[in-house]
């Protein structure tokens, strides 16, 4: 690993200043993704500012019925918090679907938002990758692209976002709170991660030096009825081929409201708004769910090895909605 200078931050403003002032400085929290990338020579920071001990780990109820999760809360702590388990079961399930017990104990919520793709060509500096080295080309487009995107990709990059947590946060309309050199701002979840376009090197709309301080979950009473379904090659400790976060408000056999987000299919957690439109007001049955699934994948485009993902995603959507909807009472 390339040498770097380390400093431990004791307050957020100082951490923001230290990273802002140096182009190749980075924050480190749990380190579970960053250190891996540094060992591989993909990330080469000159300075690491340790934010793990900043007092940003609290999980609290918000006045209007929502919940605030501090960015330094560990994935396992957030998963097990009563406010999260009771109000947003889909989020607890998403946390628990990701990584391993050890990694969930280390990884922070803020760091999970900053996870980089697990595209093997991104991870290997000997391969062409526009995300790692802009302009070098994409080895995945013509390569072994079984795990790659079917929605929202570009000629430059067909990588997918690896997080489970983020798929649930997309469905729940979370808001990311950040602190930068110019003050604080809030970023709606849909605007946090980016599609690759011509700038796949930028995963998010966070500016250099901006620190994630918390994630706010708005009140969503019907989120009690929600489900996270992850389909993967192994039963545990594997990234999603396809995943679905489904939140459904059903009464009298009809869908009153719905939130659907997909993982493993795009460069960012994919909010399936076309599916939500079809669901809202329709009968809560498998026929409706299938129509919604067709709509969600209507713009999908497969590459050589990942055609299967399109039908897999549709079936996963139907199953996740059926589970979340329960008996439809």
């Amino acid at each position: 690993m390339k040498p770097f200078v380390y400093s431990r931050a004791t307050e957020a403003a100082a951490a923001v200043r230290q990273v802002s002032n140096e182009r190749s400085a980075k924050f480190i929290a749990g380190g579970t993704n960053l250190l891996d990338l540094m060992k591989s020579g993909v990330e080469l920071p000159d300075r690491l500012v340790d934010i793990a001990r900043l007092p940003l780990a609290e999980i609290t109820a918000l006045p209007q019925g929502g919940v605030r999760i501090g960015a330094m809360a560990r994935n396992s702590t957030a998963a097990n918090h009563p406010l999260v388990r009771e109000r947003y079961p889909v989020l607890t399930q998403a946390f628990l679907a990701g990584a391993t017990g050890q990694i969930r104990n280390m990884a922070s919520v803020g760091g999970n938002l900053m996870q980089r793709t697990r595209c093997p060509y991104f991870y290997d500096p000997a391969m062409r990758c526009n995300k790692r080295e802009p302009g070098s080309g994409c080895s995945a487009v013509e390569g072994f692209n079984r795990i790659h995107a079917v929605l929202g990709a570009s000629e430059q990059c067909i990588a997918v976002h690896p997080s489970d947590m983020c798929v649930a946060l997309a469905a729940l309309d979370a808001v990311v709170r950040v602190q930068g050199p110019e003050g604080e701002r809030e970023i709606p979840f849909d605007d946090f991660h980016r599609l690759p376009g011509d700038t796949p090197q930028q995963d998010t709309n966070l500016r250099h030096g901006e620190l994630i301080t918390a994630v706010d979950l708005p009140a969503l009473p019907f989120a009690k009825r929600s489900h996270y379904l992850k389909v993967r090659d192994r039963a545990s400790y594997e990234f999603a081929l396809v995943s679905v976060a489904a939140v459904l408000d059903v009464s009298g056999g009809r869908v009153r409201d719905a939130r659907v987000a997909l993982g493993g299919v795009a460069h960012k957690p994919w909010r399936a708004r076309e599916a939500e439109k079809i669901l809202t007001g329709a009968r809560a049955n498998e026929e409706t769910y299938r129509k919604a699934a067709e709509a969600a994948l209507s713009g999908a485009r497969a590459y050589k090895h990942n055609t299967f993902k399109i039908e897999l995603a549709k079936r996963a959507i139907v199953r996740a909605l059926s589970t979340a909807g329960g008996s439809g009472a």
Binding site: L35, D36, L48, T100, I103, N105, M106
Partner: peptide, 23 residues
């Protein structure tokens, strides 16, 4: 040495972590 096998697992304040993924 990359968080995949768990051979490096230790306890920190009673909580299990991968020591290879930790500075």
């Amino acid at each position: 040495n990359q968080g995949a096998c768990g051979a490096c697992t230790v306890l920190v304040d009673g909580t299990r972590i991968n020591s290879c993924f930790a500075l």
